[in-house]
Each structure stands twice: as structure tokens, then as C-alpha cells.
């Protein structure tokens, strides 16, 4: 009798757990933490390479952001679904294979349907494979969490990456080329003589903008590296 009761109680407990709200506080945090307090670029300083390379203009940056969000979400989902099947000894290779497959997919689709973008982004789409954010999330999160949570985590990290590189690109294109999404903004407001800054078009400009962003972010969150 008492044993039966425990079973019932256990079932209730399981049911209660599975009934966690679709967007509970914990899950919201999974998404929102990487956007600011635990941002992959400004706090963890991951994925800097592509953040510097593709941010000359907003358009390629946007494509790159979408590609990274796609890869990170699906890689997280796939790895999370397979997490109990993956042998621990070869887990990194398995993760890498999954990421590489997704990246190749993105690259092939770009080549078929947006050839100009494919040429602009060139090697950097392929280099998403080596983007530390992706592998980092797989190893740190997807290997130990359920699929739905992993998708949320992927979205959080992906958008955390995206908004930073889009911000960098916004300033670089605005100051370097005097335009936003190739729209000549300064000419439109009648300031045709706006002095564009060559430094911003160069990779060095990305360092400067990113450095300022990290500074603002960290002074706000009070994060200090030890």
C-alpha cells in the first residue's frame, strides 16, 4: 500500500517536472544570459575572429549572423538528441562532424541561391566550424541537457553573438562607408561631405569598436577577469 503510494507520488512528481512552463524563469535565463551577462563575445571572448572579419558592412554581417544562429541551434539540437548515444571518447569528433555538416549545408545553399553573398563571406562561412562559440555550447550545454533547453541555449548564444557583430558592423559601415545596409545615409540627409574613416573599413576598426563595446558591457555588468 505504502509502496503504491510512493509510485503514485513519484509519477506526480515526474508529471509536475514535465509540466515546467514553456518559458519558465530558468528557461528564460538560458536565452537571456548569453545576450548580456554571459555574452559569448564580450564576456567569454569567443568567436572574435569572424567578428572582426565580416563586420565591414551590415549585409554580410546579417547573413553571417543568420548562418551562425542556424548552425548553433541545430548543432545543439542534434547533439542533445544524440547525447546518450555519443561515446565519450569520440564526442569532440562527433560534435565537429555535426557542425561541419551544418556549415557545409549553409555554404552550399548560399552558393546556390545567393552567389554574391557566398563570394563576400568566402572562407568565413566555412570558418563557422572553428567558431569557438558553437563547439563551446555543444560541449558545455548540449551534451548534458534536453533538446528543448538546448535549442533555447543555442538561440541565446547565437543572438548574443549576432547582436554584438551587428552593432560592430553598424558603426563600421556608418563611419567607414557612410552608409547603412548600403544606403548612403549621410548623402540622404544632405551631408555629402561626411568624412568617412578608412580605419573603420580596416580590421583595426573592428578591434576599436569591439574594444569599446566590451568596455561598456563589462563596466555595466561589473565583470572582472581574474
Amino acid at each position: 500500500m505504502s509502496a503504491e503510494a510512493t509510485v503514485v507520488e513519484k509519477e506526480l512528481k515526474v508529471e509536475k517536472k514535465s509540466a515546467e512552463p514553456f518559458l519558465s524563469k530558468r528557461r528564460k535565463n538560458i536565452v537571456t544570459d548569453p545576450l548580456s551577462d554571459d555574452n559569448p563575445i564580450t564576456i567569454q571572448v569567443l568567436g572574435i575572429c569572424s567578428a572582426l572579419a565580416v563586420t565591414v558592412k551590415l549585409e554580410p554581417t546579417l547573413v553571417m549572423s543568420i548562418a551562425v544562429v542556424f548552425v548553433i541551434v541545430f548543432a545543439n539540437l542534434i547533439i542533445s538528441l544524440m547525447r546518450n548515444l555519443i561515446p565519450g571518447r569520440i564526442r569532440i569528433i562527433v560534435q565537429l562532424a555535426v557542425v561541419a555538416t551544418l556549415v557545409t549545408l549553409v555554404s552550399e545553399f548560399l552558393k546556390a541561391y545567393s552567389y554574391d553573398m557566398y563570394k563576400v563571406l568566402g572562407a568565413y562561412v566555412g570558418l563557422i566550424i572553428t567558431n569557438c562559440i558553437v563547439m563551446g555550447r555543444l560541449e558545455a550545454f548540449a551534451m548534458a541537457n534536453k533538446p528543448y533547453d538546448s535549442i533555447l541555449d543555442g538561440l541565446g548564444s547565437g543572438f548574443g553573438y549576432a547582436w554584438i557583430i551587428l552593432t560592430v558592423a553598424f558603426f563600421r559601415e556608418l563611419l567607414g562607408s557612410g552608409s547603412i545596409f548600403d544606403f548612403k545615409i549621410f548623402e540622404a540627409i544632405g551631408w555629402a561631405t561626411f568624412p568617412t574613416n578608412g580605419l573603420m573599413v580596416d580590421s583595426i576598426g573592428a578591434f576599436v569598436v569591439l574594444g569599446i563595446l566590451i568596455w561598456i558591457q563589462r563596466s555595466k555588468s561589473g565583470y572582472v577577469e581574474h
Binding site: 572579419a53 565591414v56 563576400v120 568566402g122 572562407a123 568565413y124 580596416d202 580590421s203
Partner: peptide, 12 residues
């Protein structure tokens, strides 16, 4: 011109 893998922002 076209290229396969020159660095964006530099050789590209």
C-alpha cells in the same frame, strides 16, 4: 577580378 580565398577587406 575574382578570387577564391583572398582575405575579405584586404586582398579580396
Amino acid at each position: 577580378f575574382d578570387h577564391k580565398g583572398e582575405t575579405p577587406g584586404l586582398g579580396a
